[in-house]
Simulated scan of single mutants.
Amino acid sequence: MIRAAVVGAAGYIGGEVLRLLLGHPRVEVAAAVSSRFPGKRVDGPHPNLRGVTDLTFCTEEQLTEYDVLFLATPHRTTMRTLPRLAALAKTVIDLSGDFRLRDAEVFRRYYGEPHEAPELLDEFVPGFPELAREQLTGADRIAVPGCMAAAAILALTPLTDEGLIEPDVDVDARTGSSGSGATAGEANLHAERSGALRLFATSGHRHEAEIAQACGVRPTMTATGVEAVRGVQVVCRTRLREGITEQEVRAAYRRRYAEEPFVRVVAQRRGLYRLPEPKILLGSNFCDVGFALQPDSRRLLAVSALDNLVKGGAGNAVQSLNVRMGWPERLGLEFPGLHPV
């Protein structure tokens, strides 16, 4: 049994980390940090945890020593706090965007300010078992990818691994309101969000840099906020290289994900759920990926879906912890999702 602490535990991602760890057979949640609710019960902001834990929030100053530290803090915050928190645990798993990119100049361009701990960037391994399983084994610094970036990367990787597509990719992402966090402000009020299809980050979305870094493509990304609370669906529009057939594309997906415990290939010709749909993935650590070709054309749609708080965040973090510790990857992550919802 290892001891874990979660910093930023009152937010949506932090709460999801708590939910998964409280059900994990080899982890004890020893501390949950919140600057907003110190001394208050965890099941206040996270009512789904009623009867599951009597834990109360503490402050950063009350932290002691742990085996693993999860940082569910806002973007641009982790790089400031990590130098003083890193000594508290052998393993640090960061769920913010601060250590996802390897290049400090790329970070500055996409996040709008210089990185405050550039000397630490090379210490972090991607918290992405499907791409970095060998690196994660024994890793002490882990950076979990962004939710829409993770979905796009999993959709594109079979195609880029085998050189099946041209490098220019349009990434069209749709996301539920929980992706904006628990303190998102006026734009996320029900009166403003309900019924809206809000296009945001119409150029220079920060996930472009993650997709380019992982897949070696030239992505142009837009994201749209939709009515849902949870869930991400990503449609990547690209072109096959000359002479590539549908059969080769299907075979590439099957080969790439044949042994992956949490990626399923969904590309059927009929049925209600013939392409990836986030609704049936809610609460699960699965990412469904699929594709569709336009007839008599080299135009390809690569599609993926996941729960932004689980496979797009907390679930990837716990899966990465399982890999790092040499445990079965499914440990604590067996929930399959619900249908109907």
Rank of each mutant, 00 (worst) to 15 (best):
A305R: 06
L275R: 11
A302T: 01
C287Y: 05
K279M: 09
L309S: 08
I280N: 03
Q319A: 14
A314G: 13
R324E: 11
S320G: 15
D307W: 01
L309H: 11
V289M: 05
F291I: 06
V310W: 00
D288N: 04
G290T: 01
N285A: 09
W327L: 10
V323K: 01
F262T: 02
G315A: 05
L301S: 13
L272N: 11
S320E: 02
A305K: 07
V323P: 06
K311Y: 09
R269C: 13
V318L: 12
L282K: 02
L321G: 14
I280G: 12
V265N: 04
N322F: 03
S284E: 01
N285Q: 02
V266E: 04
I280T: 14
V323R: 01
E277R: 14
G313T: 09
G313W: 05
A314N: 09
R298H: 14
R270T: 11
L309E: 06
F291P: 03
N285G: 05
E277I: 11
F262D: 04
F262I: 02
K311T: 12
V289E: 00
L272R: 14
Q268V: 11
P278Q: 08
G313K: 12
K279E: 07
P278I: 05
S297C: 10
F291S: 04
I280C: 12
R324L: 13
R274L: 07
P276N: 06
V318K: 02
S297I: 02
R299M: 12
V289W: 00
V289F: 07
K279I: 12
G271L: 07
M325C: 13
F291G: 03
Q294R: 15
R298V: 00
L282G: 02
L309P: 07
L301I: 07
G313V: 01
F291W: 07
Q294H: 13
S297L: 11
S304V: 05
M325K: 14
G313S: 04
Q294W: 13
L300Q: 05
N308I: 06
P278N: 05
E277T: 14
D307F: 02
V263Q: 08
L306Q: 04
R274M: 06
A292R: 09
N322Y: 03
G326F: 10
L309W: 09
C287R: 05
D307T: 12
V310F: 03
P328M: 11
P278C: 08
P276R: 02
A317E: 12
G326S: 11
N308Q: 14
E260V: 08
C287K: 07
R298K: 08
L282T: 12
N308E: 12
L309K: 09
N322M: 12
A314D: 06
S320R: 07
S284W: 03
G326D: 12
A317R: 09
S297G: 09
R324G: 13
S297Y: 15
A267S: 08
V323Q: 03
K311I: 05
C287N: 03
A292N: 04
Q319G: 13
G315F: 01
P276F: 00
G315S: 10
A292C: 06
E260P: 08
N322P: 06
G315I: 06
D296N: 10
G290I: 08
P278W: 00
M325G: 09
V310N: 04
